[in-house]
């Protein structure tokens, strides 16, 4: 980097020394008072322009950009927080609905269960009643049959007793006395049996 610079400057030095004789030789250039005024004048112009451009154009613009970005970030974070809150509320509402639905389903199931239970109960009762009625009629039939059978037994006993008396005594007893005797006997046997 330095070598070409030095070489190039040596060329400049030669032309300078040849052409620029008005400059005092031996004065250290930064302390050469001849150069102060042009330096200051151009510095004032150019630094003034720089200050004007920075203070009027560049810095307000950069401030605007940074402010807009800060604002945007704050807004986005805010929106995100709001949306999170919404999502949370929605989640809670969903949970609540779910709990309600579950409770309703439970009561419905309970009701159905109760209703079915009641129906089956009434059906069972009806069936029971029917069966009881059938049982009672059957018992009545049996009783009928038994009493009828018992009356038959009395007549059979009378007939048998008449035949027996006829055979033993050779004379035919009258029907009334035989049936009275049979009735008396069966009454005593019934008492004994009981």
């Amino acid at each position: 980097m330095a070598s070409p610079q030095t070489a190039a400057e040596s060329a400049v030095v030669k032309t300078e020394l040849a052409g620029d004789a008005t400059h005092q030789a031996g004065v250290f250039p930064p302390f050469d008072a001849h150069n102060f005024l042009p330096q200051i004048i151009w510095l004032v112009i150019i630094f003034g322009a720089l200050y004007w451009l920075m203070s009027r154009v560049a810095l307000p613009r950069v401030e605007g950009i940074l402010e807009a970005r800060r604002h945007r970030l704050a807004k986005d974070l805010d929106d995100a927080a709001k949306m999170q809150a919404q999502a949370k509320a929605a989640g809670e509402a969903y949970d609540k609905t779910l709990a309600e639905a579950r409770a309703r389903a439970q009561t419905m199931a309970q009701q159905t269960h109760d209703k079915l239970h009641a129906e089956s109960e009434t059906k069972r009762h009806a069936l029971d009643a029917e069966l009881n009625a059938k049982l009672a009629s059957a018992e009545r039939q049996i009783d009928d049959m038994r009493t009828r059978a018992m009356t038959n037994v009395a007549s059979i006993a009378e007939d048998t007793a008449m035949v027996l008396v006829d055979h033993l005594t050779g004379r035919r007893p009258d029907r009334q006395s035989v049936s009275a005797a049979v009735a008396a006997t069966s009454a005593t046997s019934a008492v004994k049996a009981n």
Binding site: H34, L37, P38, Q39, I46, L53, I65
Partner: peptide
Amino acid sequence: DASFTNASLLMLIILGLVSLLMIIGT
């Protein structure tokens, strides 16, 4: 003496570069 010198040229280049960065850049 308000001569435009090599130092003035560099100042002008500085002004140009800072403006390029801060004004064109933004």
